[in-house]
């Protein structure tokens, strides 16, 4: 008995990965077949980076602001917002599948349950790679200055993948609960609130009042700090100062990503279990 369980364990892992890969490819095909569903995830962060860095340019003049270029501050925010919407977009796709009955066919197939969550998560990661690359490219064209080198880019990619995982779990969990487009508004609202109730617009030392308290305890603040650190530089007498990647600015972000991702993926799995019942 034990031997048979042991012998099936690797097979289950393989079929999990294979099924997840199949679902991931389906999600990637959807980018080509239904570009209108994916383009907002790219256009929105580009617009946000341009609009915020232009409108709030003067905020960099406030004493204590960590960079003298507004695009350095707002581009990583745009990247993370785009990644979040790439993830939550898979919640919208799931709602469509639930409404058309395609998801019932998936549930009837012998694909492992975990693959129904892992597949969309892999899709979100792939979409995030596109979003980060494009938005970062636009950011550099608009004058963003990276001083953290390869590590600075790496932590931005990592943070974006983390946010995409959190958003995927959140989107899938809500889609399983609501099973229709009512869930879509809550998906977006939840993400929007959690992102903006952090250091999205200004650093903690520049904030005042209630938002300072909320942003201090919001784990998204740590993820944003991790994502931005390679860009938080100033030019003093023609020399770029600051903006190096440190472990102190990285580990709280990593921890927040791991905890939030685990919670959200557990939330999605619980929703799927409830749907099965």
């Amino acid at each position: 008995m034990t031997a048979s369980i042991l012998s099936t364990a690797p097979a289950t892992r393989t079929s999990n990965v294979r099924a997840a890969k199949g679902l991931m490819l389906r999600g990637l095909h959807a980018i080509v077949r239904l570009p209108s569903a994916f383009f907002p995830a790219i256009l929105m962060p580009i617009f946000q980076s341009i609009a915020f860095s232009g409108t709030f340019f003067a905020i960099t003049k406030v004493p204590g602001f960590p960079t003298d270029r507004s695009i350095n501050w707002f581009m990583p925010l745009g990247v993370l917002m785009g990644s979040a919407f790439s993830g939550v977009g898979l919640g919208f796709s799931l709602i469509r599948d639930l409404e058309t009955g395609f998801f019932d066919r998936l549930r009837m197939s012998p694909s492992p349950r975990n693959s129904l969550i892992l597949g969309p998560m892999f899709t979100a990661w792939f979409r995030t790679l596109i979003v980060v690359t494009v938005v970062m490219g636009v950011g550099f064209m608009l004058g963003a200055k990276l001083s953290g080198g390869v590590l600075g880019v790496l932590v931005l990619f990592l943070a974006a993948m983390g946010i995409a995982t959190i958003a995927t779990g959140w989107g899938l969990g809500l889609a399983y609960i609501f099973k229709d487009m009512r869930g879509a508004a809550i998906m977006q609202l939840g993400l929007f609130m959690s992102m903006f109730l952090s250091t999205a617009q200004a650093p903690l030392n520049v904030m005042t009042g209630w938002l300072h308290t909320v942003a201090s305890i919001n784990p998204i603040t740590n993820i944003l700090r991790m994502a931005r650190q390679g860009f938080l530089n100033r030019t003093v007498n023609g020399v770029t100062v600051g903006g190096t990647v440190t472990w102190a600015n990285t580990w709280p972000g990593l921890l927040a990503m791991i905890v939030l991702s685990s919670l959200m993926l557990f939330f999605a799995r619980r929703g799927l279990n409830r749907l099965d019942k």
């Binding site: 709030f56 003067a58 905020i59 003049k61 406030v62 903006f196 109730l197 617009q201 200004a202 520049v206 904030m207 005042t208 009042g209 209630w210 938002l211 300072h212």
Partner: peptide, 20 residues
Amino acid sequence: LFFAALGSSSFSKATQLPGF
């Protein structure tokens, strides 16, 4: 109202800058 509340907490120090 949410944006107004966010803005007033995030940018209140900016009102001291020239041009405001």
